[in-house]
C-alpha cells in the first residue's frame, strides 16, 4: 500500500505490505538496524522511535498507519557527524554497557526531555523509564545521561 512518510528528514514514498510492523520496515526493508527488537511484545522499549516527535514502540505500530507522519530513528539524531546532545550525554556518562537497549533508551530520553525540559528529577526519569529494559542492570548511568542530556538540550 502506498505510504508517504518523512524518515529522518527525507521524504519517502513506499509501497508497504499492510502486515508490516514499523520496526520490520526500518530494519529489513530500509536497513536502519539501529532500532532493535528486544521483546516484540511492547514491553522492552528497544524498538522506540519518534513518530511526529513522540516516542512509540515500533514493534506495535503498522507502517501503513503512518501516511503523512514524520519518523525519527536513532540514525537520524546526529547531524554533520556531531552526536545529538542526548547521545553525547550517554557517551559522557557511560549510559551503555552492551548497547542493545541504548537506541531505545536515547529515544525515551528525548521523550522525557520533550515532556519535562531539563527539569526532570532523577526519580522522575527513573520512573518514566518503566517502559525500557536494560538487562545489564545499568540504569544509574542511564538516568544520569538522560538528566544531563535533557539539560544540554535545554541549554542548546
Amino acid at each position: 500500500m502506498q505510504t508517504r512518510l518523512t524518515l529522518n528528514g527525507t521524504a519517502r514514498e513506499l509501497d508497504i505490505a499492510p502486515a508490516t510492523l514499523l520496526v520490520d520496515l526500518l530494519r529489513d526493508d530500509l536497513a536502519l538496524t539501529g532500532t532493535h527488537v528486544g521483546c516484540d511484545t511492547s514491553q522492552c522499549g528497544a524498538c522506540n522511535v519518534l513518530i511526529d516527535g513522540v516516542a512509540v514502540k515500533s514493534c506495535t505500530v503498522l507502517a501503513v498507519q503512518l501516511d503523512g507522519a514524520e519518523i525519527t530513528t536513532i540514525e537520524g539524531l546526529a547531524s554533520d557527524g556531531a552526536l545529538h546532545p542526548m547521545q553525547a550525554a550517554f557517551k559522557e556518562h557511560h549510559g551503555l554497557q552492551c548497547g542493545f537497549c541504548t537506541p531505545g533508551m536515547v529515544i525515551a530520553g528525548l521523550d522525557i526531555a520533550r515532556r519535562h525540559g531539563g527539569s526532570a528529577s532523577r526519580e522522575t526519569i527513573a520512573h518514566e523509564l518503566e517502559g525500557n529494559l536494560c538487562r545489564c542492570t545499568g540504569y544509574q548511568n542511564i538516568v544520569s545521561a538522560i538528566e544531563a542530556g535533557s539539560k544540554a538540550m535545554q541549554d542548546a
Partner: peptide, 9 residues
C-alpha cells in the same frame, strides 16, 4: 496505563 510509549499510542 502501560508506560510512556504505550500511552503515546
Amino acid at each position: 496505563i502501560g508506560d510512556p510509549q504505550v500511552r503515546n499510542r
